[in-house]
Design a protein around this nucleic acid. Sequence first.
RNA 1: GGCCCGUUAGUCUAAUGGUUAGGACGCUGGCCUCUCAAGCCGGAAUCACGAGUUCAACUCUCGUACGGGCUACCA
Length: 479
Amino acid sequence: MSERPVRVRIAPSPTGDPHVGTAYVGLFNMVFAKKHGGRFVLRIEDTDQVRSTPESEEAILRSLKWAGLEWDEGPDCGGGFGPYRQSERLELYQRHVGDLVASEAAYPCFCDGERLSALRAEQKANKLPLGYDGQCRGMERAEAARRVESGESHVVRLAVPDEGQIQVTDHLRGEITFESAQIDDQVLLKSDGFPTYHLANIVDDHLMEITHVIRAEEWVSSTPKHVLLYEAFGWEAPTFIHLPLLRNLDKSKISKRKNPVSLDYFKAAGFLPEALLNFLGMMGWSMPDDVEQFSVEEMVEAFTWDRMSLSGPVFNLEKLEWLNGMYIRAMEPSVLAARVLEAMAPIERIRTLAPLLQERIQRLDQFLPMAEYFLSSEVDWELETLIPKGMDRKTAYRGIKQLAGEVDALTPWSREGIESLLRDFPDRNSEWSRKHVFTMTRWIVTGRGASPGLFETLEVIGKPLVQDRFRRAMLRLRP
RNA sequence: GGCCCGUUAGUCUAAUGGUUAGGACGCUGGCCUCUCAAGCCGGAAUCACGAGUUCAACUCUCGUACGGGCUACCA
């Protein structure tokens, strides 16, 4: 391990909902930093111009904070190694990639997407390993320089050696050997001038003096490329530590189709952040002496990597709920009361509900029961209510699945957006009438056949819970 | 298909060559109790398989099987 002061980082990509996996990796980074008196950095990897959004970045920071992660440096709080947003560091990457091209560790490539996909298709058909064939690699330097100079669209690729081996050391797994020949000439700089993850990551980790890269296992197979980059730059590589991947019940990588994964969901469903973090701390890691309830401080105190296990843990909601209950029982009742109000029924929320319920009640005592499906994550259905009259189960499932996908993609979460999504849905799915859409959505989201205005209702319930109800409805309906 | 990682009950995990394989969730029986939770006591359920190394393998090595990840101008 390095002698330098410990510096670690998480690098979420602002391309969607705040993911529980980010909190998981973040927890271990934070705990490790605290254990060694180091610094924990949060860096935003917004190099995907198409998918990155400021809203997502904001949501991620907010949710990670809710979960209890505290970083020492980041885009919101600064630090001595900024900027902490990769889109603000573009010159850095371009300059460094220039060095790589100059030393012939990388080269410009002019092949377009069309040629690349044709190549892939051919390789697939012939059962050959997939990868770039190196056509532009042999190009005369002068010609390449001339074409770049003339403004021709191109990317920059890493020149991976044709033969030999690349040794990667994973702190938990030991030495892993990769054959150079198996490794693709990775794109480092995209044609829009933005770096790919691989380049930006290495440049930033070096410049930000990151000593330990603690990330998820899905990165193991790209680590040899990273090692090559460190060598090409002449930089000392950090220690690599790959955490196991959180899994669905069927053992596949955790996904929103099969599990709630958005931190917003856990908040909306009434999980306590301290219980969530505790639970994440027992995914792949364990406290000595069979202790299962522990705080971050206690985890820091006991933390060592040899208590880490490598098989991918199934994210088991039932156990989280048990743990959450333990935390609730341990609270002072007055604290519990305050937290229930704060988390589930803050006055702002009651205020947004008031106009929706006002016309439907005659006495004040009817308000809360009617607000049930706004305030609770628990909704269940009789199977028949999820299948429109005269429609078969499969068609219903298909429609709900499509609708759920569109709901996932809807941003921002506004009344207007929801309305046009639902109203125009039959244009995109001819098996469903508008009446089908409205009726089914109402049943799925409220668990009832009648509700206040559907669009307002969805808006107020909030995206995380609406998404979860669609997910559950699909589970219920799956043939 | 290729490359890489992993494998203790349904699930989360303990064990670092010698244990009746421990704990927890869930399931289940009982106690408590007006009921239900909670709590307490009990039960069923696990070392993927095959070789090897060793006096001794859950533990070390190899193979097989199974699971997973990656295989993008996404991260």
